[in-house]
Design a protein around this nucleic acid. Sequence first.
DNA 1: CAACATCTGTCGCCGCCCCGACATTCCGGA
DNA 2: TCCGGAATGTCGGGGCGGCGACAGATGTTG
Lengths: 238, 238
Amino acid sequence: MTRQPGKPGMGRGGSPPDIQHAMWLARSFGRTDYLLLRPEDLAALEGAGSYVSKYPGTHLFRQGEASTAAYVIQKGTVELYRGDHTESMVVARAGAGSVIGDIAMFRDEPYFQSARAVDAVTALRIERNRLLPVLMERPVIALRWLVAGLSQLERTQRRVLGLLHRTVLEQVAGLLLDEADDRGEIHLSQAAIARLLGTSRQSVNEALAELRSSGAVETGYRVIRLIDRPAAARAAAE
Amino acid sequence: MTRQPGKPGMGRGGSPPDIQHAMWLARSFGRTDYLLLRPEDLAALEGAGSYVSKYPGTHLFRQGEASTAAYVIQKGTVELYRGDHTESMVVARAGAGSVIGDIAMFRDEPYFQSARAVDAVTALRIERNRLLPVLMERPVIALRWLVAGLSQLERTQRRVLGLLHRTVLEQVAGLLLDEADDRGEIHLSQAAIARLLGTSRQSVNEALAELRSSGAVETGYRVIRLIDRPAAARAAAE
DNA sequence: CAACATCTGTCGCCGCCCCGACATTCCGGA
DNA sequence: TCCGGAATGTCGGGGCGGCGACAGATGTTG
């Protein structure tokens, strides 16, 4: 996922339907292009909710709360995690275009996990009571929503496979390939990587040392640079 | 779950969206548990596909094949796995009401995993070309399909959490609680359990020995009986 | 510039679990 | 009924990785 250095501090309330927004929404619902979202459908979805802005570290929702709404992320990255204050396990990271909180909302159960903004995040918040009629009225949007959910499911299934029978070195290499931006840089602390993989910081460090000594990456303060992509891919052994 | 008996025929073709229907949906979405697509939903989809029967051990589809259709399981259990002939990793097990193969089909990619019948399986096979019109025409079905997919996603997320920082003993205990039938029996070989958890048969055996010595279960040939559910739950440490 | 918080890099200990090997038990088919 | 395949039960060796500890490096704040 390419991360854009967008400008911070936005987030106004009611805005006129924006073509930019429409384009973004159209892109956000999966890579499939045989079903096009028409402008009026987009407007309907936007009209059913409102945009919220979150500072880094703040929560969109917490596990156990009543699930009254779902969120479509427009900008930024959100970390979905579960656990108490002492130890938390990261379930997934969600970027622009991802839908979060909809599972609990559709099933009318408390949120199963917490959602915390990693950086500056803006998201479209849609209440359950207002979403269902829209989805009933506009099957195209329902299908788009479906494809988004299924894409998330596939990513999670890949993660299960990544956790099974894979050494920490392979997992780290795979994560770096996933998370690198267009300049081949990954801006994550080693502790953050460890929490993403459900492993310990020390093991991540050891794996990075291995990759460094083989010339695949360079490591710095809060930044890792991919030097030799093929070498990293070989270490990931995918 | 009590089901409204007086519910008339759902959503016929060109009728305007029904708010009543939306409200009913909102109420009925809770507590769907393992029953994902319900029999009446299946009936509505029957016209778009045809039933296929599979003997134990045969495949509904294999990873890498072109994804032309999705399947809704009507009876039996299907194992979704990935890997070559030497070593395979089980991604999930799917029972009656589950939808499989839809991810790849909607995204128009080859199947990401293989689906093999564990026991005698009958499933409704639906081609993409015929499914999409039905979903467009009947938002109720589309929403149920959506909820089915999201439920699968939640189960997979739970599995991720189960793999992180959980000892084999805890995982085995959790699986037994999940998989036990109404008589408290689990009909799986220890090797099958091991493949489900991505661990080794010996470790599963050791964990079962532990549970047996603590009086939580009894073990037999291809069968495990839950004797003390609370004890097993304690061992699972959920 | 100094004090502080955070992050990186390493080491050693120890426990869980993978793996190979083997004996034993159970079940189904000829 | 007998036999072969499959499943269970157990042991020991070895390795990966969690955990605590600590030093040095790097931003950050007053």
